[in-house]
Design a protein around this nucleic acid. Structure first.
Length: 245
DNA sequence: CCCTGATTCGC
DNA sequence: GCGAATCAGG
């Protein structure tokens, strides 16, 4: 098999959509996972959480976890008379809350419903989730995706699934809906719902020629850049006809 | 073990 | 340019 334009296109789309190399590989058929990765890299597509490169930025001054203990001396049990350890075994677990991942979407993660009481005193030093990454974000789009400022030319890059991609054909429930694999240049790729949800799919309408979305969603994705001075005229401008080209 | 993506390197 | 082999983390 060779890398035809169609195949490259599909690879690109899926890769950017978050599909794994394996998924892409057997979707394309005739190529291995490695081939896909290799190609993706050659196309300059890389970037995406790699299990092996999860850690990178800045050095980590972590105390090496004492996980070793395997080599050599496995702490021979001393036959000491009686050395009652003063510390009771199940003492205090780590009250430290592990913050897993810096999720992209600042979408409200729902307050912790955990009514856990065992919170000793002042442990919530965790008010440092500040991270305000994208200052230009204006609001959150329909799928929980960031919408960008009026000046931004780029569309909100809808896919960006946090992690794994929705199964190609998850269920009959969305069998007739537009899945990632159905996307092409002529189909509106506006996300409906959230990636990962069983009914996540894409708009699927015919696109507004020259744009990645249908007319309706173009209106959502692109905001009119009004000349300075004019405050927003109520009509959000549904993008009637951007007569591009 | 399985999975992942990254990299290398002979073709 | 291609992709199997290899590497390395989860």
């Amino acid at each position: 098999m060779s890398w035809t334009d169609e195949r490259i296109e599909k690879l690109t789309k899926m890769w950017e959509g978050g599909a794994t190399a394996s998924q892409i590989a057997d979707e394309l058929g005739g190529v291995s996972r490695n081939a896909v990765i290799g190609k993706a890299h050659r196309l300059g597509l890389k970037a995406r959480p790699s299990p092996v490169k999860a850690n990178e930025k800045g050095e980590v001054a972590e105390a090496p976890v004492a996980k070793a203990a395997k080599p050599a001396a496995p702490a021979p049990v001393e036959a000491r008379p009686a050395a009652p350890k003063p510390v009771s075994p199940p003492a205090a677990p780590a009250p430290v809350e592990a913050r897993p991942a810096p999720a992209n979407p600042p979408a409200a993660p729902a307050a912790r419903p955990a009514p856990a009481a065992p919170a000793p005193s002042a442990a919530p030093a965790a008010d440092a989730p500040v991270a305000a990454p994208t200052p230009r974000v204006v609001s959150v789009g329909p799928g929980g995706f960031l919408r960008q400022g009026p000046g931004d030319q780029q569309a909100p890059i809808p896919p960006a699934p946090p992690r794994r991609l929705v199964p190609a054909r998850p269920s009959p429930e969305i069998a007739d809906k537009t899945s990632l694999l159905d996307l092409n240049d002529r189909i509106c790729r506006w996300p409906m719902g959230h990636p990962g949800e069983p009914d996540f799919h894409f708009c699927g309408e015919k696109v507004n020629p020259g744009f990645p979305y249908c007319v309706e969603h173009c209106g959502r994705a692109y905001q009119a850049q009004l000349p300075r001075g004019h405050r927003r005229p109520p009509p959000p401008m549904p993008f009637g006809g951007p007569r591009v080209r």
